[in-house]
């Protein structure tokens, strides 16, 4: 199972990196979302995907899955949600004010 997850995460990383390297700002933001998806799945996978009950004591199971990475992922998800929403609004403001979403045209020097 870990192998398939690793392959899927690899695909997510590849897509993310490819999108981040593109010209359009929206594609870049999508790329960062793919990357964070990959990273969260990586956290889940790296703690071994053993079978076990959901980490609720009420389940009264013999074995539970590791609860720690789930907490880490939850933290990381809300952080990246906050950052992504900020990034989207920033892109919107930048589009309004600079009139372009092409990263090539956002280079510029200070002398304009």
């Amino acid at each position: 199972m870990e192998l398939y997850m690793s392959l899927a995460i690899g695909v997510l990383f590849t897509v993310g990196v490819y999108l981040v390297l593109s010209k359009s700002l929206l594609r870049i933001i999508l790329g960062t979302s793919f990357l964070t998806h990959g990273v969260h799945l990586l956290l889940l996978t790296m703690s071994r995907l053993k079978t076990g009950a959901a980490p609720l004591l009420g389940e009264k199971a013999d074995a539970y899955v590791d609860p720690l990475p789930q907490a880490l992922i939850l933290t990381s998800i809300v952080i990246s949600f906050g950052v992504t929403s900020f990034f989207f609004v920033l892109a919107y403001k930048a589009y309004q004010k600079l009139g372009t979403d092409d990263m090539e045209q956002l280079r510029g020097s200070d002398d304009e």
Binding site: V20, A94, L106
Partner: peptide
């Protein structure tokens, strides 16, 4: 606006790498 887009992008990427490193 222009510079903060770049600053944010680079830091989002490095944060993603940080989480990946913690995961490993």
């Amino acid at each position: 606006l222009r510079e903060s887009i770049k600053y944010m992008l680079i830091n989002i990427l490095s944060s993603a790498l940080f989480v990946a490193a913690v995961a490993y």
